[in-house]
Simulated scan of single mutants.
Amino acid sequence: MTINCLIVDDELLARRLLTEYVGKIPELKLVATCASAMEAQSFLQKQRIDLLFLDIQMPDVTGISLLRSLPNKPVTILTTAFAEYAVQGYELFVLDYLLKPISFERFFQAVSRAVEYINLIKVLPKTAETETPLQTDIFSEYIFVKSDYKIHKIAHSDIDVIEAYGEYILIYSGRQKIMTLGQMGKMEQMLPKPGFVRVHRSFIVNFSKIDAIQGGTIYIGDREVPLSKGYRDAFMQLVGKNRLF
């Protein structure tokens, strides 16, 4: 499955490097490169793409401002020399961010994740807007999730992490990943409290599955979940009620 991508960066050398990297990955097709956010905005009004490589620091209009202005955001990987922009990226449902200078190994890691996600989206059936994509059963121990032309029954106790991807939700359950149309707000209302906790605009965690907490990161198995400032106080109060020190 071919994935159409766009590179947006005001630096010529950066565009050349990313173009070279894209050319090494068979699934990717480079549709265009843009030297400014304004140029990219004009292009995106005419043609839809699957994957956007977006620089943040650009003259006149930043990459973040461009992303906020797009009504239909493509899957986006930020490219930046400033690690602090990662938080803003999570708030805008950015899939990953690459810190300059970008190695091909790190680029390949981000693209592999993007390819997996985009391929999942393309095979999911579109649900009517009036239809609720997620429903609970009468015992409130499970959720039923529509995905890949099936309705999957998932026990609350099997859910590790729930992650938002724009209009989609990705549910991690052990090694299984299930993607469905849905909104995090509705999902949060459906799940039992305090068993499930919102820790970020894009993440809900099963409190019983947490292995460790360090700074702004929650560890569940081999997954690292960001803990944002807006949810930190409520989360730490819950942690405080269950600790021995």
Rank of each mutant, 00 (worst) to 15 (best):
D10V: 03
L44I: 14
A110H: 10
F235K: 04
V145A: 04
I159D: 00
Q88D: 15
H200P: 07
S103E: 07
P192R: 01
I3E: 00
K29P: 04
T62I: 04
Y165A: 00
Y231H: 01
D60A: 12
M38T: 15
P226L: 07
A37W: 12
K150I: 00
I218Q: 09
V8E: 13
T130D: 14
S112K: 09
Q189M: 03
V123C: 14
M38A: 14
R232Q: 05
N242I: 02
D96E: 12
G174P: 12
E141K: 02
L98Y: 13
V87Y: 09
G221W: 07
I162Q: 08
M1G: 01
P133W: 00
P71I: 00
V205Y: 03
G182S: 02
K229L: 10
M187H: 02
Q237E: 09
P59C: 02
A164S: 12
L51K: 14
L191H: 05
M184Y: 02
K126C: 03
I138W: 05
L124V: 01
I220G: 03
Q214V: 14
R15K: 01
H156C: 02
A234I: 02
A35R: 15
M187N: 01
N4I: 03
E129M: 12
Q41P: 12
L244I: 07
Q45V: 03
S228N: 07
L95M: 14
L95G: 14
L66D: 13
F53D: 09
S147T: 10
D55W: 08
L227N: 10
L51T: 11
F245L: 00
